[in-house]
């Protein structure tokens, strides 16, 4: 079974993120980049499926030239090879343009399954899995908390507002996973060493047949008009409970008219 995992490099979630005042895009230079945490669950799921059913895992990433920590981490965890799409023309791509570029890369690969994390921690739109399924004409199996494969059939639990749906489809399919699905492994020392020798195929937009007018700033169908930093929250009152903390808390709530 051939599995493609899509990973994204994002600014460290713990760091203060801001928009670049000139481009109004995420200022990637301002903070350290690392793999989007949710994507580790996607890699782990792919590795477990391959351990069970055989096959190989290709990791695909798209980003600025130096954004190679994400796919490297995937290779260290155990993915077999990487495809890295990088091109200045891709800068500024919104979710729609990104999904178009990724669909083009997928068009050059053979696969039975595409796995993604259900959300990137920077933009947080959760759109790309659904967009890719739409573009590729494949079943959308998003927000999966459990994945089972039997022959050419796949079954997932899709988390919903009311509980979950059990969803079935035929392979190939696009799956996005939530963090309930597994416990991502840490790369072993051996894994880290082995990753250095794994093949990385670096591609540009033209190389996968992307029309530059359809991606990046030019191809995006949305535009950020302005961005302002919100005023920081005012510092609150913190008290120690000396036996009356609950009552004092209610006094505060009453002062705000919640009680």
């Amino acid at each position: 079974m051939k599995i493609v995992v899509l990973v994204k490099q994002v600014p460290d979630t713990a760091a203060d993120k801001r928009l670049d005042p000139d481009t109004l895009a995420v200022d990637r230079g301002a903070v350290d980049g690392l793999i989007n945490e949710m994507d580790e669950f996607a890699i782990e799921e792919a590795l477990q499926l391959v351990e069970k059913h055989g096959g190989e895992v290709t990791v695909v990433s798209m980003g600025p030239e130096d954004a190679n920590d994400a796919y490297k981490k995937a290779l260290q965890m155990g993915a077999d090879k990487a495809v890295f799409l990088t091109d200045p023309a891709l800068a500024g791509s919104d979710a729609l343009a990104t999904s178009l570029a990724l669909a083009k890369v997928l068009g050059t690969l053979e696969y039975d399954l595409v796995i993604l994390g259900s959300e990137a921690s920077d933009a947080r739109t959760s759109l790309v899995p659904a967009l890719l399924a739409e573009r590729l004409g494949l079943p959308q199996l998003s927000f999966a908390s459990k994945v089972e494969i039997e022959g050419a059939a796949i079954k997932i639990n899709r988390l919903t507002d009311y509980g979950h749906d059990v969803v079935e489809a035929a392979l190939p399919a696009v799956v996005s996973v939530v963090e309930k699905i597994n416990e991502p492994r840490y790369p072993s020392f051996k894994g880290i060493m082995a990753a250095k020798k794994k093949p990385v195929d670096t591609l540009d937009a033209a190389g996968v047949g992307i029309d530059a007018a359809e991606v990046g700033w030019a191809g995006s169908r949305t535009k950020v008009l302005d961005a302002t930093v919100a005023p920081p929250r005012a510092k609150g009152t913190i008290v120690s409970d000396e036996g009356n903390g609950g009552v004092e808390l209610v006094e505060f709530l009453a002062s705000k008219k919640f009680v």
């Binding site: 005012a234 609150g236 008290v239 409970d241 036996g243 903390g245 609950g246 009552v247």
Partner: peptide, 18 residues
Amino acid sequence: LVDYGVVGDLFAVVPQAT
């Protein structure tokens, strides 16, 4: 983040508030 915080055991503070 808080506007108001109580440092204490929730099993004392929360039932008292309730």
